[in-house]
Design a protein around this nucleic acid. Structure first.
Lengths: 232, 232
DNA sequence: ATTATTTCGTGTAGAAATGACAATAAGTAT
DNA sequence: ATACTTATTGTCATTTCTACACGAAATAAT
């Protein structure tokens, strides 16, 4: 075997930290492994990257196969490449996270035999397979950092939401000890001018219904180009 | 060849965007490739990762072989893995950037035959080898973002520096159109309480010498733990 | 239909941070 | 001594931030 060939004995995979929000807390979708290694352990959904598949495409595929969803927010975080991170050989993995609207996720489609389950993002069991605890922590940290500087939170909410729901989301993501002040939060987010008020109101609640809002992405991008910086 | 084996026909490399600051502008260290592919083209320093080498270690090695430096600021940015990014096979690369004190870099050590040269970081030729323009842009963007929120700029300065030097550095990194206000910059950075004044002064200048300062990392970390957030 | 219950929606005032601005001080070179 | 160059320092007006409480609008229960 030539020297160059000896470098071509490794593989790479993608692992995807899929976040959702159920109205109360931030969740992560984990699977229980059906095959060795780490059979039976909880793990991040992931797969080897096909030889002629781009990295991002592989991450999308993993997400699509597990949730049936496509066209969702997906972002690469970093590569994890410790020599011994995988028991069967040299496999580095590229970690991604996605943000999905939890209500769109139906339950595991039949095509995927493995059991998948939502777990509390801030309180995940510490013995995930491989180095997945590491990966999860890194992605969670990155989400927390990024969510306060870019308007990605909306990816976790239904298209129309109330300001209270939005606030609860941010309280769940940034773990502010005391929560956020209601009036100040509303003032701030409305002042950015990136939300549009819907004509409908919240329905089916046993109290005064709230106004519904939508995130206006075009408006945000126009303002961002002019120097607006989202910051919570 | 088994199905699993077909996944083990790829390699990975690291590429390192090495930044320096010469007192006026931000620089990147590029090499001129001595071998195919892209022989003669300018490129980021990088190498294949050895089979039993951690990713970070490979990035350090590349840096060390080129500059003779070790123990410098090094950070992984992301993986670049388009299927066709490398002409000789499937090779994904993990991009890093490092910040070095340019005065410590002697010139290419003999061990490295390739010619290495500093280029203006904000104005690099657009036909680097591989997808290196992409990688460079991403790393530069990341540096700009990160430099305003974490005290990493000091890695580019000598241990003792004047406030004017520090300001010039930040003006070079964040390309503020009008520069920063001198009085306000000093007020802000000194108020953070992470600099210590040296007993010496600047020497060898034909005008009033400035006080020299050092970055106090322990102090910063103590304050950061209590909630200080570096922000310029 | 009155009442209880729950959440919605809103403004103000004091404190803190920011941004704009220029004159004197301390050295070297001639 | 004088010219030259860069270093150092404070104030004021404006903006932003933070803390804080009550009437309004709907449903549920009687």
């Amino acid at each position: 075997m030539s020297e160059v060939e000896s470098f071509f004995k490794s593989a790479f995979s993608v692992d995807n930290v899929i976040f959702g929000f159920d109205g109360r807390s931030l969740k992560v979708l984990l699977i229980q492994r059906g095959a060795a290694p780490f059979r039976g352990k909880w793990a991040l959904p992931g797969d080897l990257v096909y030889p002629n598949e781009d990295l991002d495409a592989a991450a999308e595929r993993v997400l699509q196969q597990l949730t049936g969803l496509s066209n969702v927010y997906l972002e690469q975080v970093k590569a994890f490449g410790a020599v011994d991170r995988h028991p069967i050989g040299r496999v580095i993995t590229i970690a991604y996270y996605s943000l999905i609207k939890i209500s769109n996720y139906a339950v595991t489609p039949a095509s995927f035999a493995q059991s998948a389950q939502w777990h509390e993002a801030n309180n995940v069991i510490t013995d995930l397979a491989f180095d997945h605890n590491d990966i999860l922590d890194t992605c969670l940290q990155q989400l927390k950092t990024k969510a306060r500087r870019e308007p990605i939170g909306f990816e976790l909410l239904p298209p129309k939401f109330t300001l209270t729901e939005l606030q609860q989301l941010y309280e769940a993501i940034l773990d502010q000890p005391k929560g956020l002040d209601k009036r100040n939060f509303r003032k701030k987010i409305l002042a950015m001018n990136i939300l549009v008020e819907c004509s409908e109101q919240q329905a089916g609640v046993a109290h005064r219904p709230a106004k519904l809002y939508q995130f206006d992405k075009e408006k945000y991008e126009a303002l961002a180009a002019k120097g607006l910086s989202f910051d919570l």
